[in-house]
Amino acid sequence: MAGWNTHEGPALCLPLANVDTDQLIPARFMSVPRAQGYGDYLLHDMRRDDTGGLRADFPLNQHPEVSILVTRRNFGSGSSREAAVYALVDAGIRAVIAPSFGDIFASNAVNNGLLPARVEPEACAKLEQALTTGPRPIRIDIDTRTLRLGDLTVPFTLDDSWATKLINGWDDIDLTRAHGDAITAFRDTRLRTAPWAWPAAH
């Protein structure tokens, strides 16, 4: 996964609260292997009518080129399905800006190079207002934790460890395997001091 610290791209407002991961990708598409791409499933039932055709009045259908979403509170709540992040990433989304995110979604996002940028509700309302007439470019700087839309500069919050991971594009498994000795020592101690922690019948 490639790391990044700045991005500038067209941002679209999705003025909806509580967009849960069942909306981001309905469960029926989750058996698809990742290699086939998940972009077409993003917000599937909102974007498409009963016959599978794209709804002309849905903003994301009018502007499929956007790479940033500005949305409302509690984005990505619900199911832990990482497929919700795959759908966003495969549709070309690099960052989601919102007042709050589901905890598991935010963690999954960072693991896939997608920035969950948390902004104050008032600031988010300003961004939303600036986007009412359609997409406009936003410049994101992870190092300074700021977003810029025209003259408007908005700070965002992001866990420091997540910023490091996004910037470096790190994969945790490699980092963790470097701690192999500590893990083995911990396991040995646990087995000795809490033998009940191993399943009795296995």
């Binding site: 990482e82 598991i104 963690s107 999954n108 693991n111 945790d172 498994i173 963790t176 395997r177």
Partner: peptide
């Protein structure tokens, strides 16, 4: 609960 990347991490480590 954890996501798929974390599942892979737990499986591996």
């Amino acid at each position: 609960g954890i996501g798929a990347t974390e599942v892979a991490h737990v499986l591996a480590t």
